[in-house]
Simulated scan of single mutants.
Amino acid sequence: MRWSIAKAVIIGLVLLSNVAVAQPLAEESLILSTQCGRFQLVLGRIKLDCFHYKKVRLHQATAAPSEDEEFLFVTANHGTPSLHYVRHLGQSKVTIDTTQNDCIRIEAKHQLPTDRTETLLIQQQASGPIEITHEIGEQSRQIQTASFWHLIAEEPELFETAVAPLLSLMFDRYRMDEFSDAIDQRLRAQAARSPEITKASVEQAVGQLADPDRRQRLAAQRQLASAGVGILPLLNQIDNKRLDAEQRQLIGKLKQRLTIDRHDTPDRVAAWLATDRGYWLRVSQDWTPQQRSDAHRYLVATCGRGLDVDPSAVAVRAPIAGH
């Protein structure tokens, strides 16, 4: 971002000042109201937008004797922003920290009427599962999930009561429940169609990346790239130890291109999850017998293994011809 010196001075005087207000803190967080740091979900993981941010240091507090306050600090290093946010409201305190490489730490503490403290800690590293620790008094649960979309399917009550309120401080474009329903509807429709991506075709194309003929290697690259984000769950199942250096390099570059920072839409997320058998196992539990039958058939063709269904309860169709 380019700023003139005059603009920087004027904006700095405004944004670096402390603001005391007599009324309660607004429901909308400083993150959303100022748009100085913009978050988005990319394949269900939190990303701080590297192209739309402003360096600020903001403090907003209510008049005494209330201790309600908000603090927002956004800075950047070589064009990569980081953010620190604190919201203290009544008996609750939320802290959000981001660092470079998409590392996110969200901690919420709430004092319960029973003199116990409820704590929720969400930690997202640059790669690997999202780790969540939920503590109420001396009771503690630890959860690992691939993305926040997976979390909705795996832990719907925890997400609705504890996680969604925190994400609402960071996002203004997502209504998570409606978004999740839209993904579910798209997967139900997808189950009734022939799959566009199969495990067998992906493994064949990956093997072709090591072909001595350069034309065959290029054809395999084009085939894999054209499959879109739906190929990612299948690529993650491939044992890298069985690949040569060039195959690993090409697959790494392909994954990087497919996970570029494009914010989630129902179509994009549904395409990504279309080959994620674990996700289907969760969401299909509430489907009708016919929909589960379609899902089983679809997953057999796509992933090589279907749902764990009872054949006496669900009449599973034969595999799709040609797969």
Rank of each mutant, 00 (worst) to 15 (best):
L254M: 02
R268T: 06
V283C: 10
W272G: 08
Q249I: 05
S284G: 07
Q256W: 02
W272I: 00
R268N: 02
D264H: 10
A271L: 09
K253H: 09
R257W: 01
V269I: 13
L281E: 15
D264F: 07
D276T: 03
G252D: 08
V283M: 12
D261H: 00
R262L: 13
R262P: 01
I260E: 14
G278R: 11
A270M: 09
A274K: 13
S284W: 03
W280Q: 06
R257H: 12
A274H: 07
T275G: 07
L254N: 02
V283P: 11
L250Y: 07
P266H: 06
R262V: 11
Y279R: 06
V269Q: 06
V269F: 03
A274L: 06
A271M: 08
V283F: 08
T265E: 05
A271I: 04
V283N: 09
L250Q: 15
L258H: 01
D264W: 06
W272P: 05
T265P: 01
P266W: 03
R268P: 01
S284T: 15
K255A: 08
A274C: 14
L258P: 05
P266F: 02
T275A: 14
A270V: 06
V283E: 10
R282I: 01
P266Q: 05
R282D: 11
L258F: 00
R268I: 03
L273P: 08
D264E: 11
H263N: 13
G252F: 00
L273C: 04
K255C: 09
G278D: 14
R257V: 03
R257I: 00
L258R: 02
I251P: 14
D261E: 11
K255D: 04
Q249T: 13
R277S: 11
R257A: 11
A270E: 10
D261M: 00
T265F: 00
D264A: 10
R277T: 08
L258A: 02
W280I: 02
A274G: 10
A271G: 10
